[in-house]
Amino acid sequence: MNDMRIIERGTLVNDIKISAKGVQVYYADNHAIKDVDVEIEDKTVTAFIGPSGCGKSTFLRCLNRMNDTIDICRVEGHIAIDGQDIYDPQVDPVQLRAKVGMVFQKPNPFPKSIYDNIAYGPRIHGLARNKAELDEIVEKSLRRGAIWDEVKDRLDAPGTSLSGGQQQRLCIARAVATEPEVLLMDEPCSALDPIATSQVEELIDELRQSFSVVIVTHSMQQAARVSQKTAFFHLGNLVEYGETGKIFTNPEDSRTESYITGRIG
């Protein structure tokens, strides 16, 4: 209904990776996302902030069609990655998700060894031709997940035996191992203690080198620390989207200001 809204932003540095136009999401009769337009840049960390139940996680899950796994969920509108509509009937969600990886709120390592957790994605997508290549991928991914040094001696230990922060870095490494182009993170630090959180945040900053990262977070400080772009959601609407610095220091919308100053949320 308001397609022509122009979002003010700083100098365009990166290509547009994901563009969403007029996205509506319904859970049965509940209108969860209302007409959201957003353009997410490549090699950038974009943060979605907003009060609980504002739809930020729901919108995130639209970007790799995770909502397909929920029967009552219906998505309308247009979402494109590299200009290709991901809701096109020809698109295989499985192939899409290989390209758009996801890390979840609670660390969810599979009940397998650390090695098998990482190797799972490469195996199903056929990224390695032999054991040596797979070993290489596992090691590279664990290094990129900044956890290699802690686990290299016990790759056969079950993934569930790690601490919470290690588990989450393992999950990130697992997502990285499939070589996605976009990495979606749904409140990746909400179940972690402060030390683990800072480790994961450092990791996110490094990942920006190679991926477009979209992170949903409850913590405004976290959004300010890790992201370059920030989108503020409220009651299913995208209220404001722009440079992180600008959103936090000089928001345009009064609702954004209220949220940032702690009056709503």
Binding site: T69, A98, F104, N108, P111, G121, I124
Partner: peptide, 22 residues
């Protein structure tokens, strides 16, 4: 737990791969 399945789907696994391997 559903989180286990989500983790697998999020990596681009098909449903049968998720069932068999996770």
């Amino acid at each position: 737990p559903q989180a286990m399945r989500d983790g697998s789907y999020g990596l681009g696994a098909t449903q049968s791969e998720t069932i068999k391997q996770v």
